[in-house]
Design a protein around this nucleic acid. Structure first.
Lengths: 109, 109
DNA sequence: CAGGATCCGTACTGATACTG
DNA sequence: CAGTATCAGTACGGATCCTG
């Protein structure tokens, strides 16, 4: 979720819960985090793992997560190029949230 | 969250985490739940509590939460009208998620 | 009081084609 | 491989006016 932001002017968050939703609210972000919490992944791996996402969208969501300090992006200089995404400590602390969401989603939904 | 759906065709959720995000991903939904977890509220109360939301938007978000079985809507037949919103048992089980989000948002963000 | 109706901006996301 | 550029649809959410 992430819609009124525009150029991400930090948005003036009134409640801590809102801050978290803005970081995790994107269409694919929780899925991305879910994967990266298990192990680092390359761009192409994520692209295949998240059936349905396009490269353009995946790139944007990853960039936003990166800007929020949730994931790190490491470019391995070589041919062909290889870019690895990993979760940061800050991002890993979202794991309880993800687990809680997973539990709820499994019970309902 | 909560974007490509359209007329809410149950969306084919591949991961439980995704199901939860789709329910909670609205711009104001976590704020609404946060309030309702404390105590029931009338429409006008919510409208004032959530500084910045419009009546139209609040109505829509409440209707979606209602459709997802997260909140209940009780109309007290009288003049002037009085409508109370409350959290359902299903909705209350989102509390761990909200708490986890609250903790993270308090530390970062 | 608690909305419904209408108009509308724009952010989100996808499709497709192209590049270092 | 890992993107970027461009075009475009549409759902989300706000503003404003109106009503039982």
């Amino acid at each position: 979720m992430h819609k009124t932001g525009g150029d991400n002017p930090k948005k003036l968050v009134s409640c801590p819960v809102e801050a978290t939703i803005q970081v995790v609210g994107g269409r694919w972000k929780v899925l991305i985090l879910h994967r990266l919490l298990e192990h680092d992944m390359r761009f192409g791996e994520l692209l295949r793992a998240l059936k349905g996402v396009t490269a353009r969208t995946l790139t944007k969501q990853l960039r936003e997560l990166e800007a929020d300090g949730i994931v790190s992006r490491t470019v391995h200089q070589q041919v062909p190029p290889m870019v690895e995404y990993a979760i940061t400590p800050k991002g890993r602390e979202l794991e309880p949230t993800l687990l809680a969401m997973h539990a709820w989603g499994e019970k309902y939904g």
